[in-house]
Structure formats: C-alpha cells, structure tokens
Design a protein around this nucleic acid. Structure first.
Length: 793
RNA sequence: UGGGGCAUCGUCCAAUGGCAGGACGCCAGUCUCUGACACUGUCAAUCUAGGUUCGAAUCCUAGUGCCCCAACCA
C-alpha cells in the first residue's frame, strides 16, 4: 500500500508518526503501534516522528512524557529536535486555523449545554437538529472564540464546532467539537490556555503541519477519518496526509486498560507500575527482557485490519530466542536440599575446583570465529569460556529433583538411584532423610560420588547409569540469594473478556460523567495467585564478579538477572525473566486443554428472500428472457442493476444474449454500477456476448474486456478488436503449449501422477499464461487431461 | 436498531481467478552431561448457503458471527 503511494509519486518519501498521549506508561500494546509506525518509515527509507499528543491537560504529566521518551529510547528508537514534537507547542497555530475555519464559514461557537448537544445530535436512526447558535455570523463567532480564549467564560459555557453535516449517518460528522473551555493546569504550557483543541481537530492538523504522509491509527478511529479528510480538504493542505487504520493486537493473559492497571497498582495487587508482572514497558524492562526481544516480538506479529489476540507463546518464544544466545549458563538452586557427599572410596570428599563451560556445545559450534563471550563481554576461545566451580562434600540440589516415591518417568534422584551432577560426575543416593514430624519433606540426602570427576577413579563395582542430569551448587562457596519467580499475572487467556456487567467508565477522576462508577472487578477474580513466588536459595560463587546486568540461564530453570532495583552485591536478588520450555512439567496438564467441538456453527439455511408482487412479476419477465433464476432474483430487487440491464433491452423484446448480459450485470458490473463508477453502456454488451457465443473469445476474455470498459467507457467489442483478442483453440498449437509446460515442470507432473490432482489447475494456469490468456480453457482442459492420464512415452 | 469495519490451521500472517503456504503452538521421533537448544516428521483452516467460471479463499447475491461509533477523551 505504501509502496504504491511511493511508486505513484504521491509523496517524495514516507513520513510516519507515533503519537502517544502522556497520560500513562507505555505498554506492550503501544509497542506494536510504535513499531508499525517507526519500522514502516525505516523500511521505506523515510522518516518517523515521535509526537506527544498532549492536548488534554487532565491526566497528563511530565513524568509520563519522560517515561515515554525513556522507554522508547530503551527500545532503540531515536529522534532529535527535528523529529520530536509536542502537540501543545502548537496551540497557537491550531488557534489560527480555528479562526480560519470560522472565516470560511465552516465552524461556529455553540453555547448549548453538553446534554442539550447530545440530545440535538439525534440518534443512529434519527437525524440531528441544528443548535440555535449554528447560524451565528462569522464576526460573532470570531468574537466569541477570542473571548473564550481570553478566559471570559466559565468551563463548558461554549465550544467551537465544525459545521459539517447534522444528518450524516456517520455520527462523527454531526458537527464535531473542535475546542472546549477547560481551566486545568497543563504540564507543559501551564495556565497559558484555558481552551484546548480536541483530537479530531488537532490530530489531522498536526499531521499536516509535520508533513506526515501516512498517519496510521487503530481501527476504532475509522469513523474519524471522515473528519480528517474534511479538515484537510477544507483547509486545502497539499500534499496532505492520509489516515490508514490497522487492527489492534492484544496479548493473552494480559490487560492493558489504563484504568484496570491503575487499580492493580493502587490496590496493591502489584508492587507498582514497574512490577515485573505488569505489561508496561517499564515492567518488562525491570523483569529483564531485552529491547531486542520486544522488537523481535513486535516484528513477528502480523498487521491486518482485524483486532486480534496474540498467543502468549509467540511472545515467550521471542524472549527465549533472544536470551538463549546471550545468556551464559550457570547454576543456581532456588529451593535447596542439602546433600552430604562421600567419595568413591567411601571416605569424605576433599574439595576440588572444576572448570565448567559457560556455553553449551551447539552455541559454541554456531560461533563463526570460534570465540565465546565471558559475562564481562570479553570474547575468548571456547575452551577458555568457563568459570571455576567448587565441588566438596556438602552441596545443594533442587528439592523437586529428589523423590522418595518417584512418579513414572522421573529422571532424577531416587533412593538407590543415580543421577549425574551437571559437570561433576554421577552420584547415588544412599539415604534420603525426610521430616517425619512435619510434612514429610526431604531434608537431607546422603549420597556417594561414583566417579571422581578429576581422577576418573570410580567406586569399585559400580556400573550404575545416571537417570538424568541435575544442577547443583557447592554449599561451602555458594552465595545465598533471593529468587523472584514470576509467572503470568492472570490465570486465564482473556481476563478482560466475559464481563457483561462492565459499565462504560470515564477515565479521569474529574470526568463530567461516569463519576462514581467503578471499574468492574471481574478481572481481579482471574489474578493468578502464583504470579510471584519468592524463594531463598543459592547461586554459584562465580556470578559475584559479573556485570550486574548479566542475563544468565540458570541451567534447567530459566533465564534470570539481578533485579535492578532491589538486588545488592551482599544481598543478591534474581528475577526469573522466563522459564525454559518444560515438556516434563507440562505433560500432566496438557490433555486437560484441547478439546473444542468443531461444528458449533450450525449451518442454517438463509431465509429465502421475499419479493413484492411487482418484483415477482419482474422475475417472471426476466426468466422469460432467458435470465437464470438467481440473476433474476438479484436484478428484480436492485433498481440500479435492473435499470442498467433494461436500458440495453428496450421494451421486453427478447435479446439473444439476455442470460449472459444479466450474468455480467449481476456479477462483474454490479459494484461499479452501484457506486456509479461504471462507464459501460449496456447497449454495447450485446456485441460482446455475440463474440463470446460465436466462440471468438472466451468468457474469461470477455470479463477482462468488461473490466477495462468499466474504466475507459470504450465499447467492449472495440476493445476486442483493438487488442486482437482471439481464442486459441487449434489442437496442434495447444498441444505444443501443453508439452512445453509439462516439460518445464517434471516434478509437478510426477506429483500429479502420484495423486496430487489439484495440480490440474496449476497446469491449466501455466498454459493460459503461456498463451497470454488466449487459449480456449475448455479445450486445454480436455487435452491436458488426456495427456496427463495417458502418458505417451 | 442507523452507519462503519472484519471473517483462512489452536494462534498470528500469506496466497495477479490457477499447487491453500509460513511462523508459533501441539503431537511423535532423533540428538543430548540442561526433560533446554537443535533437527526430522505428523496433525491442522478458507464463517454458512447459493451463483458466475474449465477452475473461486479471491468475483456476485443472501445470510451468520465478532468489533467500533452515537465523549466538551485520545
């Protein structure tokens, strides 16, 4: 679409803009919109603007504006004085245009109350009525507007409205309000203004002022486009921007409603706007997600004109994909159980230091230069990319890695069973101590190291194979740490949905209506009680020397980093950014999900269309002419089509090709006829039909010609003549074409003979293309089938 | 109800009237000192009913479903 505009030379280059209002923090939903705006500009070698649409003083704050800039910069977007705009900086300019609009007689000051205006606006089925003030003189309007600006009137006493169309079916066009009086402190302009422009006036204007070419917004603004276009035309901007709409994208298990997010914060369901469970950019940032992951996610969702909810898995995939290659692997135990370890010879174990690699084999192999990064960022040869880890007679392993009564398929530590300690040899559990008095939890494991990792010396007679591999940390050297295990905030995919009792609510505390109404609490019922689990455990000592913003993969657990706010060198706190995929943990609950009946949509016969007596008679007349039942029914009910059709058939005289002409009228020509864009004369259709029935042109050609005629007005038969269209039905020529096609696609031929009959269409298409649309499709089909089914060697 | 928008695998996106394809997920398998990663394979869709056409996801008609508008918010 944009490519077309550029190609047509409509604009020299693309300019887009992302226009957030600084009345809250940016969230994942904004990310998609900003990505679309910015990335589009980049892709077409254009320019993007960041604009703060701060035209409503209520609720807008500097800190929000700063946070927006900050978050966007974090994502990697850049701007300068030329490409950063504040709408409020142009209040003066907007005002001048308002004056101009009045002078053009296209705007007026209205002085009825809000309620009265709503009443006068009418309803969907009822046209609006003019306000008694609609016909004020230009001079009067000008004076009133000036006095509004000067602060002579109280809030709400007057508004400036555009004079468009009070009876428009589009409610937006019923004289929209352009300016209102509102005494509120503007975070940027202070108290300079007491009148503020509204979106429908300000936004198009600002787009034009900035030289924006493609103004993209979400679908709900589609009705506003009419105002947009009206303004651009009335004010005669050229070249002018155009508005395009796209469907919103929401994410499963999250909400983005500002009001609801505020409730979460204010009622303490989360710790703040940057609580890592929130969908705000600040929150995902604190969680530890990288900007690259967010961008990758935004890029992976498609754009369309439908509002959609994206599978959480897509987001998670983007995050993991981004983290994996950048996160060194280390070990941490989040829920520790002590293990006392004996050496292979049964004696105590003397502490030893192992060197364990930061990176798994596949990542090392994927390295183009064979070098791997240390957490510090320094790249060294793969063998050196490791860290020292102590192994001694006392260590910690994960509680869920030990079981006295293991479930089926358990590949971890059981009594008498053996597992491999990651990077440190195989151990066997000789004894598992449980808390008999308490809840029966495992408190300690006595185990034997079956083979010394350094000497390779194994215990005599031991041939136990390890059931699996588990992670561990050395008790003597590990650092204690707090782990914040985050999970999705809501337990259902669509916490916003299924809330029939929700009332429309005003966003601002000081709103004129809606005050006193509260946000439905339903979404709170879906809060996931396990969205945050805090545990005390241990992390291997090596992390102490790493940069604080290092993202790690704690092996077998997930990706973590230090909480940027609360973590201290002497009191480490790690956030779990995301878990690893877990086929084992997921298995039990997987089956509970999938099962949805396919045919909920009962196919119901549409009601038969009803006809008036006249229409019934018309159908009969048309049928007599040779028009099919279906076409006759459509024609009889559609005045425009019927008139067109009839004009080619004076009286009821039977035209020889009535059936065909009716078919074209109802099928190919209908949309153009209805919109009045067709230049075809129905009297010309007969000649075309003759050509077709005579076999000179195919139906396909006829319709092509028709499409051209709609635009040009040239008689269809003349087009056929001029372009020399003639159906090619000579068997010899067709045979040779078919031969060429088959020879060029031996693989398809084989596939067809192997049973992929759908390829018939492919072959036909190829032949048609080769013949430039001139081949007789029926003849081709016959010949092709013969050739395909009876291979001649 | 008046106007507007939309409808393709479970999810998201493709397909000048001519092979319904990709990604994520799922399932199965291979590999594995991470139940990860990687790799292989399978399953899986054109809202419904008619019509036009040699051929329809695409064009036509009727219907169904979902969303938006009827703010002095954006």
């Amino acid at each position: 679409m944009i490519g077309r505009d550029l190609a047509s030379g409509k604009y020299p280059s693309v300019v887009t803009r992302f226009p957030p209002e600084p009345n809250g923090y940016l969230h994942l939903g904004h990310t998609f919109a900003s990505f679309l705006d910015f990335q589009t500009a980049l892709q077409y070698g254009g320019r993007y603007h960041l604009r703060l649409d701060d035209t409503n003083p209520e609720g807008e704050r500097v800190e929000y504006a700063q946070a927006i800039l900050d978050d966007l910069a974090w994502l990697g977007w850049r701007w300068d004085e030329q490409t950063l705009f504040y709408a409020s900086d142009n209040f003066g300019t907007y005002y001048d245009y308002a004056v101009k609009l009045i002078e053009l007689g296209k705007a007026y000051v209205d002085s009825v109350s809000g309620d009265e205006m709503a009443r006068l606006r009418g309803s969907a089925t009822q046209a609006g009525r003019p306000s008694p003030y609609r016909e004020r003189s230009v001079a009067q309007n000008l004076e009133l507007l000036a006095r509004m600006r000067a602060g002579e009137f109280p809030d709400g006493a007057h508004v400036l409205r555009a004079k468009i169309d009070l009876s428009s079916a589009n409610m937006k066009l019923r004289d929209p309000v352009l300016y209102r009086i509102r005494r509120a402190h503007h975070y940027r302009q202070g108290d300079t203004w007491c009148i503020y422009p509204l979106y429908d006036f300000q936004h198009p204007l600002q787009d034009a002022l900035e030289g924006v070419t493609h103004s993209m917004c979400s679908l709900e603004f589609i009705d506003n486009r009419a105002i947009y276009d009206w303004l651009m035309e009335t004010l005669a901007f050229s070249p002018r921007p155009h508005q395009y709409e796209f469907g919103r994208r929401s994410l499963e298990y999250t909400i983005v409603s500002k009001r609801k997010l505020r409730r979460l914060v204010e009622e303490g369901h989360v710790a703040g706007w940057d609580d890592p469970r929130m969908p705000t950019l600040r929150a995902v940032r604190r969680l530890g997600v990288t900007p690259e992951a967010i961008l990758k996610f935004a890029a992976s969702i498609g754009v369309s004109r439908t509002n959609r909810t994206v599978d959480l898995a897509v987001y998670e995939n983007a995050v993991r994909d981004d983290l994996s290659p950048r996160s060194p692997r280390v070990m941490a135990v989040t829920d520790p159980v002590e293990v006392i370890l004996r050496g292979p010879d049964g004696a105590g174990l003397t502490p030893q230091t192992l060197t364990l690699p930061y990176w798994p084999h596949d990542l090392v192999q994927a390295s183009p230069d064979g070098l791997m990064a240390l957490p510090s960022g320094v790249r060294v040869s793969a063998e050196l990319a490791g860290r020292p880890v102590t192994l001694s007679g006392r260590l910690y392993i994960e509680r869920e890695d030990v079981a006295l009564n293991p479930p089926k398929g358990f590949r971890r530590l059981t009594l008498g069973g053996a597992v491999r300690l990651r990077g440190a040899g195989v151990i066997r559990a000789d004894e598992i101590e449980v808390d008999e008095a308490g809840d029966g939890r495992v408190v300690r494991v006595l185990a034997t190291l079956l083979a010394d990792p350094e000497t390779g010396r194994s215990a005599p007679g031991e041939q136990l194979r390890a059931a699996g591999v588990i992670h561990w940390v050395d008790a003597g050297t590990a650092l204690s740490a707090e782990f914040r295990l985050y999970d999705r905030l809501f337990s259902v995919p669509n916490p916003d949905g299924a809330q029939p009792d929700e009332l429309p609510v005003d966003d601002g505390e000081a709103g004129p209506e809606g005050t006193g109404q509260t946000v439905s609490s339903d979404f709170l019922r879906f809060l996931n009680p396990h969205s945050l689990t805090v545990t005390q455990g241990y992390v291997e000592a090596s992390v102490a020397h790493d940069p604080p913003d290092t993202r790690y993969q704690f092996e077998r657990q997930g990706y973590f980093w230090r909480d940027p706010v609360d973590s201290r060198p002497e009191a480490l706190i790690f956030n779990r950014i995301i878990t690893l995929r877990d086929a084992w943990g997921k298995a039990p609950r997987a089956e509970a999900v999938r099962l949805r009946s396919k045919d909920q949509t009962k196919s119901r016969k549409p009601d038969a269309p009803t006809f008036s007596p006249e229409q019934t008679a018309e159908v009969a007349r048309l049928r007599a002419l040779g028009v099919t039942e279906a076409d006759a029914a459509v024609l009889a009910r559609d005045r425009v089509l019927l008139d067109f059709f009839r004009s080619g058939f004076p009286g009821d005289s039977v035209g020889s090709h009535a059936g065909q002409i009716a078919a074209w009228t109802v099928g190919d020509l209908a949309p153009a006829l209805r919109s009045g864009d067709s230049k075809v004369r129905s009297s010309d259709l007969g000649a075309l039909a003759s050509l077709q029935s005579a076999g000179q042109i195919s139906n396909r050609m006829a319709r092509e010609v028709l499409a051209e005629a709609v635009v040009s007005g040239e008689a269809p038969a003349d087009i056929v003549e001029r372009r020399g269209l003639k159906m090619l039905s000579d068997t010899g020529a067709l045979d040779s074409l078919i031969g060429r096609v088959l020879a060029a696609n031996p693989d398809k031929l084989a596939a067809y003979r192997a049973g992929k009959l759908g390829l018939m269409g492919f072959f036909t298409g190829q032949v048609m293309q080769l013949s430039q649309g001139q081949a007789d499709p029926q003849a081709v089909a016959t010949l092709l089938r013969a050739k395909l089914d009876n291979p001649v060697e």
